[in-house]
Simulated assay, not measured.
Amino acid sequence: MGQPQPILEPLTPAAHFLVATVEPGGEVAARGLLAELPGLRRSIGFRLPGAGLGCITGVGSTAWDRLFGGPRPAELHEFPGYDGPLHHAPATPGDLIFHIRAQVHDACFELAMAIGDRLADIGTIVDETVGFRYFEQRDLLGFVDGTENPEGGFPDTPAGRAALIGAGDPDFTGGSYVIVQKYLHDLTAWRALPVPEQERVIGRTKLEDFELADDVKPADSHIAVNQVIEPDGTEREILRANMPFGSVRDGEFGTYFVGYSATPRTTETMLERMFFGTDEATHDRILDFSTAVTGTLFFVPPQDFFDDLPAPPDAAEAADPGLPPGADGSLGIGTLKRSSTV
Rank of each mutant, 00 (worst) to 15 (best):
S339P: 03
D139E: 15
Y134A: 14
P324H: 05
I165V: 15
D171P: 10
E27T: 12
R118Q: 10
V225T: 07
R72P: 01
M270A: 07
G116A: 07
S340R: 12
A91D: 13
Y134E: 13
A189K: 09
G259D: 08
F46G: 05
E78P: 08
T173L: 07
E230C: 06
R41W: 06
R101V: 09
A189P: 03
S61A: 15
G60Y: 06
D250A: 15
Y134M: 09
S221V: 14
S247M: 00
Y82H: 15
F135M: 11
I115P: 04
T129C: 06
L184H: 15
G246S: 04
A51Y: 11
S61V: 09
F276S: 09
V248R: 13
V293H: 09
G25N: 07
L141R: 07
A192C: 09
P196R: 08
E110L: 11
E208P: 03
P218A: 10
G326E: 05
A167T: 12
S176T: 14
P49Q: 07
F135W: 11
R31D: 04
F46A: 14
I7Y: 07
F132K: 00
M274D: 10
W190E: 10
P73W: 01
L18A: 02
T263D: 13
L212Y: 04
P324I: 08
E268R: 14
F275C: 05
P24G: 02
A262C: 12
V59E: 10
G81F: 00
F275K: 07
G94I: 02
E128S: 06
I179T: 13
E211S: 12
P194D: 13
V201A: 01
L309V: 08
T12M: 07
V225S: 01
Q5V: 13
Y256D: 08
R133K: 11
T282K: 15
S290C: 01
R273G: 02
T266Y: 14
V248K: 11
D284A: 01
T57F: 00
L141K: 06
G322S: 13
G81C: 00
P73Y: 03
D117P: 02
F305L: 08
G45A: 04
S221M: 07
I100M: 01
G259W: 10
F305G: 07
D215I: 06
G54E: 14
A74F: 02
N149W: 00
D307W: 09
L86Y: 15
E23D: 15
T124E: 15
P218W: 07
A189Y: 04
L67G: 02
H16W: 14
T269P: 04
G152L: 06
R200G: 04
E136T: 08
L119C: 01
R285V: 09
A319Y: 11
Y256A: 03
A262D: 10
P324Y: 05
D284R: 03
G329H: 00
D106W: 12
G58Q: 11
I125M: 05
G94H: 05
G84L: 03
P301L: 11
V342D: 02
D169Q: 05
F298D: 11
T278K: 04
L33H: 02
V201P: 02
T173H: 06
P49D: 12
A29T: 09
L33F: 00
A51L: 06
V248E: 14
I223K: 00
P301G: 09
A318K: 05
D117T: 12
I97Q: 12
D139N: 06
L309K: 03
P49K: 02
A189W: 04
T234V: 12
P312R: 08
T57S: 03
G52E: 10
E148F: 13
